[in-house]
Amino acid sequence: MNSSKAQSEFLESESLKSESIVGGDTAWLDRSFAWFLQIIALAAIALLFWMGSVIFKQAFPAIKTFGAAFLTSQDWDVSQLQFGALTYLYGTVVSSAIALFFAVPIGIFVAIVTSEKFLPAWVRSPLGFLVELIASIPSVIVGLWGIFVLIPVLKPIQLWLHNQFGWIPLFSTETFGPSMLVAGVILAIMILPTIAAISRDVMASFPSDLRTASMSLGATCWEMIFTVLLPASLSGIAGAVILGLGRALGETMAVTMVIGNSDLISASLLDSGNTIPAILANQFPEALDELHIGALMYLSLILFALTLAVNVLAMFIVKIFGFKHQ
């Protein structure tokens, strides 16, 4: 009784208010609101193209001077204004490859441990949370840890690799401490949360009926994982790995701090190296000459295109194949 009276009062006051504000027909207001929002959204899209075109414009002097030979030249001499990207491209690709070598198996195992029922739920969910916590640590702090903890810890291992397997070109040089291998390991730590979290989500969305069916036919838990779970989740895991690769290619601070920043390509992983993000971080603050800035912009453009391609690929894989079994 009381409430219906209040309700009708409310309706009355509300209708009066809206009439007094907009005066009846509000269709034009709705339409202009929609248009306004659409323009804002399109501006957000334009940001990406603005970014691409600004970097391209700044890189243009270098693109004009060096052309495609930039990609295959190893020269990087600021005083002579001779620039080539090969050393940095090589370092970026190799350090990311090392990162995947370590992070993919470990990430998949972490995903299996946190999605399958080996451990009780009260252990599994904090485990997943802790591994993902790595992603929220600023990379400069991981780099600081890399300089003072990881390099000393890995140094004896690197020396051992050189002494035992020095005849393999990959381990052919004595290490100073900072090296491509250390950079790869630190990248592996940084992309592990990406790979583990997405793979876990893919595995967790796998219907448990199929697990039960496989096990009731006599498969052990691990036989079920290898014959049923992993084949079905393969494309989702592939997407996760490629997203991780995208992160590894562009990761800057931690790598810059432990890779040693040399300007030579060495076949040995125990030698110091350099990556595109690392040279950008090192040289941009002091770049003055137009051609030098241009060459650095050219490098950024390459990195931009590389990560764009990798991420679009990952998104398509996850979107098209990722949840096939759902």
Partner: peptide, 22 residues
């Protein structure tokens, strides 16, 4: 818009720095 936003979130932060520099 959604697609571009997820691409933008994957652009390496150093490239964004280069953009702001320019």
């Amino acid at each position: 818009v959604r697609f571009v936003m997820s691409i933008l979130s994957a652009v390496p932060s150093i490239v964004v720095g280069v953009f702001a520099y320019a």
